[in-house]
Design a protein around this nucleic acid. Structure first.
Lengths: 219, 219, 219, 219
DNA sequence: AATGAATGAGCCTTCATTCAT
DNA sequence: GATGAATGAAGGCTCATTCAT
């Protein structure tokens, strides 16, 4: 992929990213404890000493990996919702799920979620950080949308927090299904996710029949 | 089940179970690789060598733990659905979620799900086994219910597989939320789960308005 | 040295001592940093994991080694001086040096002194501890003796602290000479130490000529 | 010695010396094994690779350090004694100790002695070299002085080798005290060293009473 | 059946050393 | 000359596993 300068060209700028990519793959596959730095290094095309030039130790590399995954996950969503403000809330919800699919689920970064869940009790501070920076931010956005939907008269008045989690559930589950039980599972997330969202939205709408014909390509 | 010398519960027959209980706690908390046999032994009130009298090695203990958790999880559900056959499908679905909450979520066994997800790629055969014995069995039951609901005219005709996963999502997510991000998260599963199911069911019903007044204590 | 029970007989009581003996040899020879736990283990006839059954880590083993060497070094001296109380102070001083020779210099433990000096700046707390428990206790005993000698009219009135160090110097130097530049050095400590003490004592005495004929076997 | 661009002292000729100075400090503080080349380089204001431009490897740097410290330590002493030849031997001895204090003890170079003692068994050839070039040369000078003192009738006839070491002992001990147990030790070498020498000399003199009034500022 | 001393493979981490720039 | 990215050997430490008691 690189211009043919030298085999092991010194490229300080690229290294941390390459190592983080490798760490994502290896940590994601094996979990924190079972992943060895040497495996990560090999995957990154370097030797076992090199990661320590960029990360203090294994834990530090792990934390850096989590942190690096956060803004791409969350920032884009905020932006999307700003642009979609004027749409019907039902459409915004579908768009949110679509954004999640495109920017998390279909991304190698999605495995971070599984990793965080597996390691939450081993790294409580990291877990708290991830929760406040990712989970809660998404939760807040969803809650705001639902509140808006109720205010605009699109949705029935209903407990906002509960529905927030009702919407979060398929997002999380889709990721876990992909990474944990993916092999030979026919209804892949892209198949069931749109239908599920539609059912949920229909359950929220005051006039459900109208919504049934929403253009499916939005999710 | 306890008859002689109940005081110190040091009867040989109890040992494997005690060790499995300890393994559930320690594996659940730390994950497979970070859990040490000695920790498990200590938690079980025995010493390092004892687990090896009952389990060939660490992997074997792990597999036994997964397998031991399977029938209590699934068998009861089948039974419940047999008894509930004559109820409206919507109610059966609510009952199914209620069963899940009572017999999995509120149980120490629920952590197995998190464990399986974390270790799926490290133990593919175990993961496959768990999937076919637990996930698919639940999926099949849900699919059958939804099909029945459509046949009976309770539910709109809709893709069954998709909705199956729409229902599975909150079940899985509730468990993970409890074990991974539990600390200080107000909307606990018992709060949002019933509402979510109700919204989903409303989204499925042909005549949604009727369902809104379902007795909430069913889930 | 052991009865022919088994090759690797389990003998928990003896192990810590054996490992400390090995640590004394290896640390003494190579210094703290250059000594490897595996070397120590091999010397003790065990494998590299075994030391960790008895000592938390390398530093802990090092500290235990220092501490274990302290009471044999100091306690006997106190006792000797109690018994020798009624002798002329000059004789007590000679006896003290003789005690040092017998119980420190001629002992494998003597290398601890060199070790402490080499590692003092790497283990400041240990150094402080050694200083207060060994060096200062010996210093105090010497100072008390000299004071007594002055009071009894045996010694000229002279700065006590200074002379304390004048007496300590050959004790320390003898040890270091033995361990650092020992190879092919003819005047071994046993040769020059008695003469040196005699000269020092003669320098202290009010009537030096008398002392010149002190029985040499006392030191 | 500094002529052009004195400001940043980055002249090539100065480098080896700067690195040796840094090596002296770092080796002296941590010992050979615990000192890292990078620490030394940093202290010298250069980077990791630079020492290798001037020294083949770590061991080579260490040896060069020892060798560089030798002539300043020994040469001056020979010179001093040549000039002092006509003085009473007792005064020459005091002068020798004074020279040691000024040119070794009060010098950063003094730490070499501690270093050599700590590393003697790790670098036997270096130790032998140091012994023959430093210790033995000083020993020889001292022995010659004492012999002279006896010949001149100043000193009692006594074993020369023994007394040589009796005089060497406080010189060595003073250095070690300074570098190993220096913190908060009140009788610093400058306090006890002159008194000690005086007592030793008094022990050597044929007519001790005369010597007691030697001017104390000579040592 | 249970213990726990001992083993040794494996992994994290450091650091002397090299070399392309 | 100087840099500093990269290497890889070495060593601290853990822990699954064994086995004599």
């Amino acid at each position: 992929m690189d211009q043919p300068t030298q085999r092991n060209s010194r490229r300080k700028e690229a290294r941390p990213g390459e190592i983080l990519d490798a760490a994502l793959a290896i940590f994601g596959e094996k979990g924190y404890a079972a992943a060895s730095i040497e495996d990560i290094a090999k995957r990154a095309g370097v030797t076992k000493g090199t990661p320590y030039l960029y990360f203090k130790n294994k834990e530090d590399l792990f934390k850096a990996l989590i942190i690096a995954s956060i803004s791409p996950t969350v920032d884009g969503l905020t932006e999307y919702l700003k642009e979609a403000q004027s749409l019907p809330v039902a459409l915004q919800l579908q768009g949110t799920l679509h954004f999640w699919k495109t920017n998390v689920l279909d991304t190698s970064r999605s495995i971070i979620l599984k990793l965080m869940m597996a390691e939450a009790s081993n790294f409580p501070e990291v877990a708290r950080f991830y929760q406040s920076e990712v989970i809660e931010k998404i939760t807040d956005q969803l809650a705001a949308l639902i509140t808006l939907g109720i205010e605009r008269g699109e949705f029935r008045p209903i407990n906002v927090e509960s529905i927030t989690h009702a919407l979060l559930a398929p997002m999380i589950y889709a990721v876990l299904q992909k990474h944990c039980f993916q092999c030979h599972q026919h209804p892949a997330p892209e198949d069931w996710l749109p239908d599920s969202v539609q059912v949920l939205i229909r359950g929220l709408l005051i006039q459900p029949t109208i919504n049934t014909n929403l253009p499916p390509q939005h999710c």
